[in-house]
Design a binder for these strands. Structure first.
Lengths: 224, 224
DNA sequence: GGAATAGTGTCTTTGAGACATTATATC
DNA sequence: GATATAATGTCTCAAAGACACTATTCC
């Protein structure tokens, strides 16, 4: 039996949620889109270490964000090479650099998760299910944890933070109510210097991630 | 590398949450308490099927409830027999019968999860962590899903449903507010016949699980 | 000034929780 | 009758959402 790792790396590009995909350079499913990942190099390799190694090798991403266990996928027949059990990891990151294809991967891109979930893009193995479960995990975590700041740069405006929620939840939020709500969550965000940034209109205050990882009150999603 | 399954089976006994434990009948950790589980019999065995087989073999439980993937545990060194990766499954069940010890298990019992989490009971391997993550998963799922009905018999009173929430969340709830709240969640519970049951005081209406798996409005836990 | 975004204030509706009250059973 | 639990109603407070309004920048 073989143990593999697969990685669901989510980021924000423009207004929508994207996932890191590679074009497989080797069989099986050569030429198909897939999540980055691969077999453990040897039986003593730590699974988490293998995940980070694959991310560097296949997509040239060295500044790897925090990886969190997502699930395991072990149905017989999910891989034509025989019995393969995959450990899937999830990570969420601010605008990462363009990925670079590496060994075993002919190409690497950020692709909108919507294209994956709606099956406009077809993924090898059972990777579409992994993406779906990763996105759902992120949605839930946005409510009660400070995960949203992990999508942002070190400092960010409240409007940028709002865009994270809108992209991941795929909803529209009222900026004014969002402003109050996010400020009310104790320790979620803290002011970051007197500096300001500008794009269009009045400059906004900058904030950085606060000390609290658990939000109270939570950022509750309404009826969906 | 070896693949194992471990099972976190939760049930309600009296007023508190219990977990199914066995006394290991073989090395390593012979005589120690542990979760039911074991190695896949052969490389083509489905993981879920192996989980159900172990449950029957080690604890004599045939009416196995719905098993849901909880996580994977693969740190090198977690098992003295070498590189073992465990797939943990979670299940939640109404009053199950007393377990019966089987092969590989000298004994099997229901034990209060509090005794496990507080380390009054010591578990082999990293099984305490599995129990902790299973309980936390159940706590979260109680809020937004109809999981609570899985702890009950086919028909139940609202008071019995409340006891589920109180046991899993380890809180006291106001019966009157709980009554209204649970009724307001669309499709959570539906009346089950005109029958009534009695223990002490006015007989209560009977309900059964409704069609909705996702609760709206959710049964929000307050600040903790 | 006009356009655009940032930030504040206020009103209404809704749900959560405290708790009084009535209903129906056993003893 | 007393007691216990079921079920309903009412009140208060707080959070959510709608939205008017002011503030500060660029053009």
């Amino acid at each position: 039996m073989l143990l593999a790792v697969d990685l669901v790396i989510l980021t924000l590009r423009g207004p929508s949620l994207h996932v890191l995909l590679i074009e497989r350079g080797v069989e099986p499913h050569q030429g198909a889109l897939a999540l980055p990942g691969g077999f453990l190099r040897d039986l003593d390799e730590d699974i988490l270490a293998a995940a980070q190694r694959e991310l560097t090798e296949e997509a040239g991403l060295s500044e790897v964000p925090h990886l969190e266990p997502l699930g395991f996928y072990g149905e017989p027949g999910r891989d034509p090479r025989g019995r393969v059990v995959s450990a899937a990891y999830l990570a969420v990151a601010p605008r990462l650099p363009e990925p670079v294809a590496g060994t075993d991967a002919a190409e690497a891109w950020w692709r909108p998760v919507d294209d994956v979930l709606s099956a406009r893009l077809h993924l090898a193995f059972d990777h579409r299910r992994m993406v779906a479960e990763g996105v759902e995990r992120a949605r839930v975590k946005l409510e009660h944890s400070a995960l949203a700041t992990a999508f942002c740069r070190e400092t960010f405006t409240i409007s940028e933070l709002q865009q994270v929620y809108e992209a991941v939840w795929d909803v529209r939020l009222d900026p004014r109510n969002f402003y109050r709500k996010v400020q009310k969550a104790e320790g979620f965000i803290v002011p970051a210097g007197p500096m300001r940034r500008t794009e269009n209109g009045r400059p906004a205050r900058l904030f950085k991630a606060g000390p609290m990882q658990t939000l109270y009150p939570p950022m509750a999603r309404s009826a969906q």
